[in-house]
C-alpha cells in the first residue's frame, strides 16, 4: 500500500527559535479561540444540572432534568430523528459533493459556468425561500404522482433528508474544491506511469490528498443539518418532529434545562461517534 503523502506534512525539522516562537504564539491563539468556542458550551452543560427551573442561574446540583428528559419520549424521538437525518444527508451529500468538486476542478465543459452558479445558489438562497419552494414542489409532485400511480406519499423524514442533501451538497463542494486547487497533477500522472489504474490512482493518491477537505466538508454538512430549523419545519410531515422544531417552539414558553440536557446528550453521542471512528481508523 502506498504511504499517504500526508504523513510528510508537519515540517518541523529545521526548527529555529523564531519558528518555535511563532508556533507558541499560534498555540496561544488557538487556546484563546478554544476558550471562546467552549465558554457557552461549558455554561450549557453546567446548566443542565442546575436546580433553577429558569435555567439561567446556578442554584444547586440536580439530575432531575435528565430524569425528566428520559421520560419525554417526544423529545428523545425528535433527537433520534435529527441524528438520523443529519447522518444520512451528510453521507450522501459528501459523496455527491466530492464527485461534483472533482468534475468542476478537473474538467472544462460546456455549461460549466452555469453549473458553477447553480452550485453557489443553495448557499446564497435565504432559507425561508428554499423552504417554501421545496414545500410547493413536494406537495405538487406528490399530487401528480398520486394522479398517475395512485401512490399516496406524505412528507416526512424522507423529504427532510432530500432537502438537507440539496442544501448541503454545495457546502461540501466549496470546501473540497478549496483542497483540490493547487493539487499537483503530476502525482497522479506519476502513479499512472507506474501502472496504477484509474481507481487505484484515485484511492491511493487523490483521495488521501483531498481527504482533509472531504472531512471538512462532511463536518460542515453534518453541523448545518443538525441545526436547520426553517427548511426542516416546512418539509417535515405529521408525526415526524425534529429537535430544532421542538426547541423553537419552546422559546415561546420557556426553554427549560431539559433542552440543555438533551443538547449535552447529543454532544456526548457525537463525541463518542468521533472517537469510535478515530479508534477504528487507527486500528486499521
Amino acid at each position: 500500500m502506498l504511504d499517504t503523502p500526508t504523513t510528510r506534512k508537519p515540517y518541523v525539522t529545521g526548527m529555529d527559535s523564531r519558528r518555535s516562537a511563532g508556533m507558541l504564539a499560534l498555540g496561544a491563539h488557538t487556546i484563546l479561540t478554544m476558550v471562546f468556542l467552549y465558554a457557552p458550551i461549558v455554561v450549557l452543560v453546567a446548566f443542565s444540572f442546575t436546580r433553577d427551573s429558569f435555567g439561567v442561574r446556578w442554584t444547586g446540583f440536580t439530575l432531575d432534568w435528565y430524569r425528566r428528559l428520559l421520560a419525554d419520549q417526544r423529545l428523545l424521538g425528535a433527537a433520534l430523528n435529527t441524528l438520523y437525518v443529519a447522518l444520512t444527508s451528510t453521507i450522501v451529500s459528501t459523496i455527491i459533493g466530492t464527485m461534483t468538486a472533482l468534475a468542476m476542478e478537473r474538467y472544462h465543459f460546456r455549461g460549466r459556468t452555469g453549473f458553477d452558479a447553480l452550485l453557489y445558489l443553495p448557499i446564497v438562497i435565504p432559507e425561508i425561500v428554499m423552504a417554501l419552494a421545496l414545500l410547493a414542489f413536494f406537495a405538487f409532485s406528490f399530487g401528480i404522482l398520486e394522479l398517475l400511480s395512485g401512490l399516496r406519499l406524505q412528507m416526512g423524514l424522507g423529504t427532510v433528508t432530500i432537502a438537507h442533501i440539496a442544501f448541503t451538497i454545495s457546502f461540501v463542494v466549496v470546501v473540497v474544491r478549496a483542497s483540490l486547487k493547487g493539487f499537483d497533477m503530476r502525482l497522479e500522472e506519476a502513479a499512472q506511469d507506474l501502472g496504477a489504474n484509474e481507481w487505484q490512482t484515485f484511492r491511493h493518491i487523490t483521495l488521501p490528498l483531498i481527504l482533509p477537505g472531504i472531512i471538512g466538508g462532511a463536518l460542515l454538512a453534518f453541523t448545518l443539518s443538525l441545526d436547520d430549523f426553517i427548511i426542516t419545519f416546512f418539509t417535515t410531515g405529521p408525526g415526524t418532529s425534529l429537535l430544532p422544531v421542538e426547541v423553537y417552539g419552546q422559546v415561546k414558553r420557556a426553554i427549560t434545562p431539559k433542552i440543555n440536557a438533551i443538547s449535552t446528550l447529543m454532544l456526548l453521542v457525537s463525541i463518542t461517534l468521533v472517537f469510535l471512528s478515530q479508534f477504528i481508523q487507527r486500528r486499521r
Partner: peptide, 24 residues
C-alpha cells in the same frame, strides 16, 4: 444511501419515533 434517499419520498420508518408512524 442513494436508494434510501430515493425511496425517501415515502418516509422511511424513523428510528425511535415513538409517537406515531413515520407519517405514511
Amino acid at each position: 444511501a442513494l436508494v434510501l434517499a430515493a425511496c425517501g419520498g415515502a418516509p422511511a420508518a424513523s428510528p425511535g419515533n415513538e409517537y406515531g408512524s413515520g407519517g405514511a
